[in-house]
Simulated assay, not measured.
Amino acid sequence: MENKVQLGTLSMNSSPHIVTKLDTAKTMKYVLLALLPAFCVSIYVFGARVIALTAVCVIASVFFEWAYEKLMKKPVTIADFSACVTGVILAFNLPSGFPFWMAVIGCFVSIVIVKQLFGGIGKNFANPAIVGRIVLMLSFTTQMTTWPVPRGVDGTTGATPLNLMENGGQLASLKALFLGTTGGCLGEVSALALIIGGVFLIVKKIIDPIIPCSFIGTVFVFALIYYGVKGSDAGALHMALYNILAGGVMLGAIFCATDYVTSPIMNNGKLIFGIGCGLFTMLIRLFCNYPEGVSFSILFMNLFVPLIDRTTMKRYYASLYGGAKK
Rank of each mutant, 00 (worst) to 15 (best):
E2Q: 14
K4M: 11
V5W: 14
Q6W: 13
Q6S: 10
G8M: 02
G8V: 08
S11W: 12
S14I: 11
S15Q: 13
I18H: 12
T24P: 04
A25T: 14
K26E: 11
T27L: 06
L32F: 09
L32K: 03
L32D: 06
L33I: 00
A38I: 01
F39D: 04
G47K: 02
I51D: 05
A52E: 14
A52G: 10
I59S: 11
V62A: 00
W66I: 03
E69I: 00
L71V: 09
K74E: 11
V76N: 12
T77M: 12
T77R: 15
I78E: 01
I78R: 05
D80M: 02
D80H: 07
V85G: 04
T86K: 02
F92E: 08
N93L: 10
L94P: 02
L94S: 01
I105A: 01
I105P: 04
V112E: 07
V112N: 07
G122F: 04
K123W: 08
K123I: 02
N124A: 00
A126C: 15
P128D: 06
I130C: 10
V131W: 04
R133F: 04
L136F: 11
T141E: 03
D154V: 13
G158T: 08
L162Q: 14
L162G: 06
L174N: 10
G180P: 00
A191G: 15
L194V: 03
L194T: 02
G197S: 03
V199D: 01
K205W: 06
P212Y: 02
C213V: 15
C213L: 14
G217P: 02
A223H: 06
S232Q: 03
D233A: 15
A234D: 14
A234R: 12
G235N: 11
L237V: 07
Y242E: 01
L245E: 09
G247T: 00
G248Y: 05
L251N: 08
A253S: 07
F255I: 03
T258H: 04
D259S: 02
D259F: 00
S263F: 08
N268F: 14
G269C: 05
G274F: 03
T281I: 03
R285P: 12
F287D: 11
F287W: 11
N289I: 06
P291W: 09
P291I: 02
F296P: 01
S297A: 14
F300Y: 07
L307R: 10
L307I: 10
Y316I: 09
Y317I: 12
Y317A: 02
S319N: 15
Y321D: 10
